[in-house]
Design a protein around this nucleic acid. Sequence first.
DNA 1: ATGAAAGCGCTAACAC
DNA 2: GTGTTAGCGCTTTCAT
Lengths: 334, 334
Amino acid sequence: MRERPKIKDIAERAGVSVATVSRALSDSALVTAETRQRILDLARELNYRPNVSARSLRTRRSMSVLLVVRDVGNPFYLDILKGVEATAREAGYSVLMGNTESDPARETEYFNMLRDGHADGMILMTGKLPPAGGWSHLPVVVALEMIEGAGLPHVQVDNIGAAREAVEHLISIGHRRIAHISGPLPELMSLHRREGYREAMRNAGLDVPESYEVRGNYLLESGQECCRKLFTLPEPPTALFVANDEMAYGAAYELRRMGHDVPGDVSVVGFDDLYLSKAFYPPLTTVSQPRAEIGHVAMELLLKILSGAEIDCDEPIILPTVLHIRGSTAPPRQ
Amino acid sequence: MRERPKIKDIAERAGVSVATVSRALSDSALVTAETRQRILDLARELNYRPNVSARSLRTRRSMSVLLVVRDVGNPFYLDILKGVEATAREAGYSVLMGNTESDPARETEYFNMLRDGHADGMILMTGKLPPAGGWSHLPVVVALEMIEGAGLPHVQVDNIGAAREAVEHLISIGHRRIAHISGPLPELMSLHRREGYREAMRNAGLDVPESYEVRGNYLLESGQECCRKLFTLPEPPTALFVANDEMAYGAAYELRRMGHDVPGDVSVVGFDDLYLSKAFYPPLTTVSQPRAEIGHVAMELLLKILSGAEIDCDEPIILPTVLHIRGSTAPPRQ
DNA sequence: ATGAAAGCGCTAACAC
DNA sequence: GTGTTAGCGCTTTCAT
């Protein structure tokens, strides 16, 4: 047998033309059941697999989509990837993972992969469009993050509302001096979570001294660092609303190092509900995003676009969050 | 301008043949510097990108490799992926992530992707070959896990030695009743880590009652569950050597739930050094694997194979581990 | 229902 | 150094 059987090999053995084989393989109605069966059997016997390059070249579809994140090293993206992958597989698409590390060159590169036929569409989770421009009308869905004025469809959560709810919880159990460790600014997601914090404080008639808002970068070490800053203040907070779980881990760790009990002395609330947060000590109170669902919905949307449907890009799709109240929050000491 | 410029478009404008354009674009020496420059300028101006399908079809190389893991949801793989990706990019390869979920059908499918031209080579981290067989001589590198008798090159760590060292640490600080929560059996990696545990115990003249070896599945909940089993024994252990960090988190969590202090009452050692382990409470004593380096070395090896070099498959490449002693281990109570 | 043939965009012989 | 040409393996008209 040849190295890799091709349609021609099957055709010769079956005594039919390549066209017929192609039709049989793609379940066309234009083949008699009997011929089709013979061809299918032969294909199985030869262990035939269609060459993807040839097929893509001809059909002009790669049957794969690009999932672009800013850091594959972040476990947060994993469940989203799973959601995307499951949905993609079902529709016969494979998923290519793209990692930008916030490098504009790489951001552009992944967009170029849409043009060179590497992928048919893209789910973008970097919150940025590449600098060059000219990326409208492309089959791109923005998930998780937001890109304003891009005219692209969005799948996200209500970051403002979710943050507000988290801070309201702290207020409801008696906290007044609540500080916020934010993500990098002026990114929209960070801004929104901070806005939710501010709204909750304002609604409760609570002051937010400028020193109570510290800017982090979503990484664990940054949580530690921001926490240290807050606890050198003359009047340190009794509770922290931290913009993601990873920094919340860092903050809780640093608090313990400084001799503060969590939640005895200081309450901590995170955002994301990483899968370790429930095993963390103390189990972290945090906002849970429907990550797999975000991936699923984003992929569904992309499939729709790829099938030629018109999509309304004005209204983002908003998925619900849940505040999980665990052991890291408690009423302040009297 | 055409929808997507192709070589022909450039050729027409440059007043040369497609062959010349192709040569100029691939930096062939058979073009005058002047012609090349003209073509390059034109290509840039038209924003030309070669069609990957056409190129792959012709060259019979996809310039991408497959990285197959059993669970993309496991953060453990992320650093490996980063190592693989960086090395692959440099050589002009893209990386496709494959996720098997331990499903034999999917395991086979990824191997098939090598045959249908989707990828040129594969880094396999599932520890299994698909059932069908016939996968020798394929450009495959096994990383992290081991597959015996497959005739494939391996990149891994010395699991036996690393486990032994971890348990020796527990023994050296005075523990005698040391239990082991293993990974799924009879997988080679689990077996090796257990073997290291047994060796350390044997060398110290310590008994391992059968009930002190509990089988887990590397997931957090499994760590909890195994821990519960161990602490219903008439003589529970004073220390645990757990086959990975995730189960160690679960075990530590469960110990606290049951009212045991870590490390006051029970010491816990993990394996993997996930990035959260240092912020865990108490900071986890654990074996660190050079994950990015594993990815890097595996990809280098794969590149060598793809370039046609002969590889010695008899001797695995062994990378060093480091035992990080942190707060989760302490001498037993007197 | 089946076959012949064109061609997707590119590269690599082979000519000159 | 450049052009001509023949495919890579597949799908899809257009005939029959």
